[in-house]
Amino acid sequence: MTAETNTRTIEIDVLRYDPDSGAPPRYQTYTVPFQHDTSVLVGLQYIKDHLDGTLTFRWSCRMAICGSCGTMINGIPQLSCHTFLRDYWPKKLRIDPLEHFPIIKDLAIDQTDFLNKLDSVKPYLIPKQEKPLSEGAYLQTPKQMEQYYNYSQCINCLLCYAACPQYGLTPTFTGPAALALLHRYNADSRDVGWTARSDVLNSEDGVWRCTLVGYCSEVCPKNVDPAHAINQNKVNSTLDYFGVLKLLSTVGLGK
């Protein structure tokens, strides 16, 4: 069968918002031809290239690694490059910008709130003592690496924020990805930044705002488990409150 005869068409409803007009968002329907391997992102690109050049959306790598193309596809937060039109045909498809974020234009959201939260968790190694390059790498065992490896896979795509009803209801919540990255560094044997990050972690808008809905971990395209990162730190936060963590660190057990 040739590619030509294999082509079908699908209707896509896309939420449009034009900041210049000031009018509330509305859906616009496009009819898009597709083949077996056409992703939702390629469908959006077809709309922009052939049907409506004013449609705005973010994308970059097309292979689920850059985290740019997150959208709500039929109400589910997904990477549009990682989702295929064939799975929705013959029904209609609805595409919205990621939930819980302000819309800048069409499917492009304002990520500023997340960037500030990411900044607040100090997402970098804080070593006990800086050493010169000449002294070589900070060594680590595979077991020590296992403690944080899962969380280091986060690509900041923000699907977890769109999946988190707590973030929607209380936008001051630090949120899944930022807290998962906070834990990624706290759990690293080369890092001593617990105290520097504890204000964010222990606060009401830190781990305690999470009510363990757990959908953040379900939608993550990289299988990161933010719900696990957050909820194991409720135990750590409690131990910290009662001074047990400090006690453990004096005997070399805590951080």
Binding site: Y17, P19, P24, P25, E99, P102, I103, I104, D110, T112, D113, L115, N116, K117, D119, S120, T172
Partner: peptide, 14 residues
């Protein structure tokens, strides 16, 4: 949340 990154001037919040 306040921070060093500033939000876009005109947005729509659902």
């Amino acid at each position: 949340m306040s921070g060093r990154f500033k939000p876009a001037v005109k947005t729509y919040t659902r």
